[in-house]
């Protein structure tokens, strides 16, 4: 479905990605793990069209999408929940959700999708008229995920959705991610909560210093001694 091939991205003087290849198959929940500064966010932003690549390929359903603008990528059904949520904080929760469905293709299903979002996050229905910036961290993360659902993603990419949340809240978000995957949405999940991520993922890649150093089924990686040592502290 999504194939990244030998991707190289420079961030100012830095070579942030050095020949990264990765593949996401339809209906999969693929995890991307790695420490801070490994290039995970850069990878997502390149796929999303926010950062240009120096070389390599990104193809989507067999067609190259490298060089597309971010709004064109969104049009393709590749939706990102950015790191740090990036909500429209001076707009209401309802307006944030509407912005998720900004493109005409998504706008046609706005009522139906709102219903689904409020089923998943009943609390957002109560907060609908509140400014997004006035919500708690956990609620803001719900808005960020909900906004992405409004865009009718075929591939949903989440960048550290549990960062800075209380453990209970984080577990809820992981639960939602798993549910969305079961509803048929393909998922690419970045997270530093390796144990939790690997238990819900089907396949995983480990990114270190801009390179994929390890990949395999999630179960396989959980048993890998290197993962146990570097990421799980076992």
């Amino acid at each position: 479905m999504l194939a990244v091939n030998d991707l190289e991205v420079h961030y100012q003087e830095l070579r942030a990605l050095r020949g990264v290849s990765l593949e996401v198959t339809q209906a999969d929940l693929v995890a991307l793990i790695g420490s801070n500064g490994a290039g995970k966010t850069t990878l997502l932003n390149t796929i999303s069209g926010l950062i240009p690549a120096v070389k390599g390929q990104v193809s989507w359903r067999g067609n190259s999408i490298l060089g597309f603008s971010a709004d064109a990528i969104c049009q393709e059904g590749i939706i990102q929940v950015p790191e740090g949520r990036k909500l429209f904080s001076k707009m209401t929760v309802g307006e944030n959700l509407e912005m998720g469905a900004y493109l005409p293709t998504a706008r046609a299903y706005i009522a139906e999708n709102l219903q689904m979002v409020f089923d998943i996050f009943p609390r957002l229905a109560e907060r609908r008229k509140q400014l997004a910036g006035s919500l708690s961290g956990g609620e803001q993360q719900m808005v960020a995920v909900a906004r992405a659902i409004m865009a009718r993603p075929q591939l949903l990419m989440l960048d550290e959705p549990s960062l800075g949340l209380a453990p209970v809240m984080a577990a809820d978000i992981f639960q939602v991610v798993e549910d969305l995957n079961q509803r048929g949405i393909t998922i690419l999940l970045i997270s530093q909560e390796v144990l939790h991520t690997l238990t819900i993922a089907t396949y995983a890649y480990v990114l270190e210093n801009g390179k994929v150093t390890l990949d395999g089924t999630a179960q396989h990686l959980l048993d890998d001694p290197r993962i146990k040592e570097s990421y799980l502290g076992l």
Partner: peptide, 8 residues
Amino acid sequence: DAAQLYGV
């Protein structure tokens, strides 16, 4: 950035 990610 977020606006662009959602198709603006």
